[in-house]
Design a protein around this nucleic acid. Structure first.
Length: 666
DNA sequence: TACAAGTAAGTTTTT
DNA sequence: CTTACTTGTA
């Protein structure tokens, strides 16, 4: 006869006294609801400036305080910067425990997992990550090999083909559907492009290459096909948070579904009105569909804005109110202030630049920190004239977005040498490495690169090539072989490897870029400095592909990063950031929206972009455009205000015109 | 066959 | 400014 057992349950530590942080005092009721939510799916729809980041940070703190091990929290963000910044702020609240939280972009997370578990799906752990231009190089190579693009029938450019292929994958569509919908002008080449895409896939698989899309696809493949991997992931990461959910695409949503399937502890945070990445396959409907992905998801809305003054919000709301898809959100604030944004009509581009520079100097006089000022624009080249003007007046700035340091040909050259060390099967990098040598052109380099990459003994294959090669290339190949041997020295640090490459590459570069090699040499020095942080070559290469230094080339040279400086940024790169004073330049039809955004779908996205731009400002917002615009196609034309602000009532957006100062006594 | 030099045309946003 | 393609030269 067994005795009956009565089990005692531990008292639920439900009350707030367990927590050191007084959440209720620090957060509004909606934020609090999101922060104190513990288990199960939750969607936080957070308007611009509504304390979204704050909410995420306190949720991390709260989970940690509740006894959740920091290592079992995964924070997926749009950039690594965003993740590190959030975790830094969480550390200020709960101490360095927060540093153990796993965080990064979808791509970097996928990379970490695939390096560790990729062998389960026949993926060698030393794969190389192809950035966009690498992919284009591969596509170009295959195109030439297929004999496409003869004189009679022009073939689309590699960039366009790469874009179509990537877009199809990001939207989970067949190439055929994608091309028909978004690239109708490529339709006549459909069958060739499809064959090219097939060969591109094979090429990557055979040579251990992964492009950005592969990182996501192969992680999904791993999780879908291997119960064990899926279990391990969801055991490791019990709590998942995703920031900027409106800019995820279907594969990313799939990854979230797979990662959260076991425990369903998933928090998605985003704002449908700020969806600006559809060109990357993002779909703002994703955020609406979150409750369908995780039925029973709690939904919290944050609508109170803590960032901007009412005048700025009035303009932002007005821009959004004309959107085709009506959003229910209307931002409001309790912040007092009479400031109204102003639309400045400049006679020409240079006057616009002078206005911005002058106003920046005035703001500094008024006591503003230069770090609190930003100039935003639709396309990276819109700031060229302003950059010159700022330089002329000695106003320090950094530029974000646009052409990146890492994309410069000479940096890519140096990286290619390191990449063939990390992954000898990386034929794209071999191609680059070989083509640098004098006497070797594309005709020779192509097959040679493939021979080396697929060889069991790449170093031997290279040496053999050196002896059989004709003419002048022999000595070059010999030098390359010797240099690579030195790179393979066991225990060598990445920074020293770069030093070895530079010694070899510098003379070659001086010849190849005779006109401007001093500038490029400074870049290489900068690169060498960057590399000092790394202890593993693999990590450095992955970082360079996934989270390259965000400063563009111009910015690196223009300012010491420690100094106070104005930020120039594309609107895309300004996402999630805020400044005291913001200028939006080139707010002109034909630039913003640009000439390629004439269809209704992309116009809607451009409008959201204007919304994002204007909600970056806390206290002051200036929009401007030049009246006389020079256009390559139309010559000089009269500029008009961007259609997104054209109909804004003048009370919400007063205008001003620039005039030269009268010549007073000097 | 490799490559320099010259011409013509296209140019968003990013992991 | 970059890239793609042509032409001329070694």
């Amino acid at each position: 006869m067994s005795e009956k057992i009565i089990r005692l349950r531990a008292a639920a530590p439900s009350e707030e006294h367990v927590f050191k942080i007084k959440y209720a005092d620090l957060l509004n009721p909606e934020q609090l609801a999101a922060v104190t939510h513990r288990d199960g799916p939750i969607l936080v729809v957070a308007g611009a400036g509504s304390g979204k980041t704050r909410t995420l940070i306190y949720r991390v703190a709260r989970l940690i305080e509740s006894g959740v091990p920091p290592g079992s929290i995964l924070l997926l963000t749009f950039t690594r910067r965003a993740a590190t910044e959030m975790l830094r702020r969480a550390e200020e609240i709960v101490g360095d425990r927060a540093g153990k939280v796993a965080g990064g972009t979808f791509h970097s997370f996928a990379n970490t997992v695939l390096r560790r578990m990729g062998s389960m799906i026949e993926l060698a752990p030393n794969y190389t990550i192809l950035d966009r231009s690498d992919s284009e190089d591969v596509i170009n190579l295959i195109r030439t090999r297929m004999g496409l693009g003869s004189r009679e029938r022009r073939f689309p450019k590699k960039g366009t083909v790469a874009e179509a292929i990537s877009m199809a994958r990001n939207k989970r569509q067949t190439l055929e559907v994608e091309i028909e919908a978004d690239f109708p002008h490529l339709f006549e080449h459909l069958s060739e492009i499809m064959e090219l895409a097939r060969q591109y896939e094979d090429y990557k698989r055979e040579r251990g290459l992964l492009d950005y899309d592969d990182l996501l696809y192969r992680l999904a493949e791993l999780l879908e096909q291997h119960e064990r991997a899926r279990r391990r992931m969801s055991d490791t990461y019990r709590y998942i948070m995703i920031d900027e959910y409106q800019d995820t695409n279907l594969i990313q949503a799939d990854l979230v579904r797979l990662l959260g399937a076991e425990h369903r502890n998933v928090m998605a945070v985003g704002d449908d009105a700020q969806s600006i990445y559809s060109f990357r396959g993002a779909n703002f409907r994703n955020i609406m569909d979150f409750p369908a992905l995780f039925p029973g998801a709690k939904v919290v809305k944050l609508e109170e804005n803590y960032r901007s003054t009412q005048g700025i919000l009035d303009l932002a709301n007005d821009v959004l109110s004309r959107a085709r898809d009506k959003y229910t959100k209307t931002l409001f604030t309790k912040r007092a202030g009479e400031f109204r944004p102003i639309l400045v009509r400049a006679p020409d581009e240079h006057m616009q630049s002078r206005f911005v520079a002058q106003r920046i100097l005035e703001l500094r006089e008024e006591g503003a920190d230069l770090n609190e000022i930003a100039v935003l624009f639709r396309s990276s080249f819109h700031s060229f004239d302003l950059e010159l003007e700022l330089q002329r007046r000695g106003i320090p700035f950094i530029k974000r977005g646009g052409f990146k340091f890492i994309e410069a040909a000479h940096i890519k050259d140096v990286l290619a040498h390191l990449r063939v060390i990390a992954n000898p099967a990386d034929a794209v990098s071999w191609l680059r490495v070989l083509a640098i040598i004098k006497g070797i052109g594309p005709r020779t380099a192509g097959p040679a690169a493939d021979a080396i990459a697929t060889s069991r003994d790449p170093a031997g294959a290279l040496a053999q090539l050196g002896t059989s090669a004709r003419g002048g290339s022999q000595s070059g190949l010999k030098r390359l072989g010797a240099m690579l041997a030195e790179l393979r020295r066991p225990g060598i640090r990445p920074a020293d490897q770069i030093a070895v490459v530079l010694e070899y590459y510098a003379p070659l570069m001086r010849e190849a870029y005779a006109d401007d090699h001093p500038r490029r040499e400074r870049d290489l020095e900068h690169f060498q400095n960057l590399s000092e942080r790394y202890r593993s070559l693999e990590q450095m290469l992955a970082d360079m592909a996934l989270e390259p230094p965000t400063d563009s080339l111009a910015g690196v040279l223009a300012a010491d990063p420690d100094d106070e400086c104005v930020t120039l940024s594309t609107i895309h790169s300004a996402k999630g950031l805020e400044w005291k004073a913001v200028f939006i330049i080139w707010a002109a039809d034909g630039r913003f929206p640009g000439p390629q955004s004439i269809d209704e779908g992309s116009l809607e996205e451009e409008r959201r972009l204007m919304y994002v731009a204007s909600t970056r400002a806390r206290d002051e917002l200036y929009l401007s455009y030049p009246i006389y615009m020079f256009d390559r196609n139309f010559g000089h034309t009269m500029g008009r205000a961007s259609r997104f602000i054209e109909d804004v009532p003048i009370e919400l957006l007063p205008t001003a015109t620039l005039a030269e100062e009268e010549d007073a006594a000097d």
